[in-house]
Amino acid sequence: MNPEQSIDLDRLCVLARLSLTPEEKEKLGPQLARIIGYVEQLNEVDVDGIEPMAHAIPMENVLRKDEATPLVDREKYLKNAPASRASQVVVPPVIEG
């Protein structure tokens, strides 16, 4: 595929919830196209029958016991919130959807 054509920057911005200035977009478009063009060299690799590798050192069943820790001093986890009220985090109005 032609990366230049397949990159829909506006759509990526929506998916990543990231606003870019027009200048940023102008710069980023060609850069992404070039990087994607570069990574497409992977097309030459034959991966028939090769399992994908999701972990550097694969393990299984890393599970913990269902034990609850006592609740002390929870306030400290809210302290970095830019805005809070009544122990809740305040966000600008969210339209249900």
Binding site: E67, T69, S87
Partner: peptide, 19 residues
Amino acid sequence: SVPHGFGNEPNRLIDPVVM
């Protein structure tokens, strides 16, 4: 390992993972 349940005061059942 934070307990879960209904009816607690807001933001009591939190820790670094939950947040």
